[in-house]
Design a protein around this nucleic acid. Structure first.
Length: 674
DNA sequence: CACTTCACTTAGGAAATAGCTG
DNA sequence: CAGCTATTTCCTAAGTGAAGTG
């Protein structure tokens, strides 16, 4: 076990244990992170058996897709899809069509943004190339610095001081962050001041020696006023800005890849500013420098119209590498890493990869029992390495931990994953709360989000754990190599995908009941989603206005409640008038009876909806559903669920999400099994 | 093989926008 | 219709893991 000085204490008080209210109103003492027993449970009997029904329900078609979906060139075809396909597509062979389209593709693609191209019905490249044709307009650079108006002053040691634009710009970055807590942090200030000084003239450098004596308040107030002014702009002016943005988007926000016009994810270059890492980042406050054309590498196809650098400038390089997916790259100055401009998740190139990811996870489903048996076997191994490997794998599987690659010390915040856990992150209890062999995890993971969990483990793991000393340099790559041998394409993160998706499927099966109405079904969906988010430890800071908004909701709830009471009184009255109506056979009174009845129903429904909403929101206080929905849950599970229960898919996925998962929405039937 | 570099996915928070309510 | 809240989109940091390098 690696040792490291410093304890976890520094972040402990920041993340106090929370009491979580369950739906039935009970207040449960919880750490907020432990997986609910429904998700995964010991003893292992449950755990090591995939649900019985899975195999029997498995359909031939799914198997076809499974076996077809390899990084090979594959025609994803079956009778269903052929039927869907348009006749002319069936007639003309793909290749000819492609070639032709590449030649005249530009005009065609620009004019008619093609009625929903179904890339998932087409062949894929098998030669490792990502595209044959790529054309784009290059990146949009950050607007140049506009010096402050002369009345906005900067003071040093109480005296006005005019800064050269170079130094002034960096000062404005700081001024804009003045309200943030981190401008008071030592490291932030130290890093900022050091980098700021680099932008100063010799004279400025000698004068400005102490950050504490710098007064940025005028600058700060100026920017606040600016943003107020922007908010208060006339509708017309706002519309103009919107139109300009749209123009820019149309021009730079799309590329042509092969014969299709595809949306680019991030066509704007990151503007300069002060780096703010997450958590305790040693580089916080450093100056992120402005990116110029000569920093930019452009990637496009030879036979495309190359993007033009701004007048009087040159690109660093133009290359034609169709083995990669990026259009533009540059090297960032904080970590020295490479940044890329790539396509939107709705694009073919991202979608195919995403689909493939879920197919790999489904492959794992087929052999996970075998793998679990094996690593349990490996706990007994005489070789320490094998035992360690098996223990790490167990936690990656059981707790959906990230792999935990090593990182360069001092370059980033001190965070860990499974393979980089150190002694101070784990506590072992031979007995805890009446349970035998409990392991307590407490560490900061990705984005410095705390992972806290207490889990009972099997005896052998615990013994193995005593030599749970992952000293092996490159433990992750050792582990991944082993996984690769167990299954083609298997890596540590596949377990996260697999466990997330299978959990959603199980939970949906378990939580959805046919009698429930639509809002209740959606609550069930969200709860299934939530189980996954908890498993994956996807947290969020409780929204700043959470308490208030919760109160508002309660208020509305009581409002409607009283309204219901009133209405039920009215209903009673109605009953008598109903009888009356019958006798009189009066159309008018009959109608009032009907409308009143409807009003009661509507209110009931409203109440129900609000109640469900309140529950959902409360349960979601510090849990983020988005990340798992977007990155871990096979969308076909959700689509199938929607189809099965006749729920409009829009209730589950918003527009962007529907675009990203178009492939799944198109192909999954109500009986899809992950 | 050990180390670095590169490409790409995953992540939470901020900003912008949509939608609602009084 | 302003003002607020909820939702969506943007932003870019922070991971994973394979490929490249010497």
């Amino acid at each position: 076990m690696k040792h490291k000085d410093g304890s976890a204490d520094k972040y402990k008080d920041k993340h106090k244990e929370k009491k979580i209210k369950t739906l039935d109103g009970k207040v449960k003492k919880e750490n907020g992170f432990a997986s609910p027993p429904a998700v995964k449970s010991e003893p292992e009997d449950n755990f090591y058996h995939s649900p019985k029904n899975e195999k029997s329900l498995k359909r031939e078609r799914d198997d076809d897709i499974d076996s077809d979906f390899k990084p090979k060139k594959v025609k994803i075809e079956n009778d269903k899809k052929v039927k869907k396909r348009k006749p002319e597509e069936e007639v003309s062979p793909k290749k000819t069509k492609n070639k032709r389209a590449v030649a005249d593709g530009k005009k065609k693609a620009k004019k008619e943004p093609e009625e929903k191209w179904k890339w998932w019905e087409e062949e894929r490249y098998t030669d490792g190339s990502k595209w044959k044709f790529l054309e784009h307009k290059g990146p949009v650079f950050a607007p140049p610095y506009e010096p402050l108006p002369s009345q906005v002053k900067f003071f040093y040691d109480g005296k006005h001081m005019k800064l050269r634009p170079e130094a002034e710009e960096v000062a404005t970055f700081f001024a804009k962050m003045l309200d943030h807590e981190y401008t008071s942090k030592d490291i932030f200030r130290k890093n900022f001041f050091k980098d700021w000084r680099k932008e100063m003239s010799a004279e400025e450098k000698t004068k400005l020696t102490d950050l504490k004596k710098c007064d940025f308040t005028e600058m700060s107030d100026y920017f606040k006023a600016q943003s107020e002014a922007r908010k208060a702009m006339s509708k017309d002016a706002k519309l103009k800005i919107k139109e300009e943005n749209e123009r820019l988007l149309q021009l730079y926000g799309f590329c042509i890849m092969d014969n299709h016009r595809e949306r680019i994810a991030n066509f704007r270059i990151e503007p300069p500013g002060l780096f703010r890492g997450r958590g305790d980042h040693p580089k916080m406050g450093m100056l992120k420098r402005r990116i110029r054309p000569k920093d930019i590498i452009v990637n496009c196809s030879k036979d495309s119209k190359h993007p033009e650098p701004p007048p009087g400038t040159k690109w660093k390089e133009v290359r034609h590498d169709n083995k990669v997916t990026w259009l533009v790259s540059w090297t960032e100055n904080i970590q020295g890493s490479i940044k890329y401009i790539m396509l939107n998740p709705s694009s073919r190139i991202k979608g195919e990869k995403d689909w493939q990811k879920y197919e790999t996870a489904r492959q794992l489903k087929k052999c996970v029992d075998r793998i679990r048996t094996q690593y349990r076997e490996d706990w007994k191994s005489k070789e320490m390495r094998i035992r360690q490997r098996a223990v790490a794998l167990y936690f990656i599987d059981k707790l959906a931990l990230r792999a935990g690659n090593e990182k360069e010390e001092g370059e980033t915040a001190d965070t860990v994953g499974c393979c980089s856990l150190r002694v101070e992150h784990i506590k072992l209890y031979p007995e805890n709360d009446g349970q035998e062999f409990v392991v307590e995890f407490d560490f900061l993971g990705k984005d410095s989000i705390r992972y806290y969990n207490k889990v009972p483990v099997e005896k052998r793991v615990r013994t193995g754990n005593q030599c749970f000393c992952f000293e092996d340099a490159n433990f992750t790559s050792v582990l991944n190599k082993h996984l690769q041998e167990l299954m083609d394409g298997l890596t540590a993160k596949v377990f996260r995908t697999y466990n997330a998706s299978i959990t959603l499927q199980q939970q949906l099966k378990q939580l959805t009941s046919a009698e429930e109405n639509l809002p209740a079904k959606i609550l069930s969906y969200n709860r299934a989603n939530r189980a996954v988010a908890i498993l994956c430890n996807h947290q969020r800071a409780p929204p700043k206005t959470f308490e208030k908004s919760m109160q508002n909701l309660q208020l509305r709830l009581t409002c409607i409640d009283t309204k219901r009471d009133q209405l039920s009184d009215a209903k009673r009255e109605l009953k008598s008038s109903k009888a009356d109506a019958k006798v009189r056979r009066d159309e008018k009174s009959k109608k009032t009876v009907e409308t009143r009845k409807k009003a009661v129903e509507r209110t009931e429904e409203q109440l129900m909806k609000l109640e469900v909403q309140a529950t959902d929101r409360e349960e979601n206080k510090q849990i983020a559903l988005g990340t798992s929905k977007l990155n871990y849950l096979d969308p076909r599970i959700s689509v199938a669920w929607c189809k099965k229960w006749s729920i409009p898919v829009e209730k589950i996925y918003n527009k962007t999400q529907r675009e990203k998962f178009a492939w799944a929405i198109d192909m999954a039937e109500d009986d899809f099994e992950f």
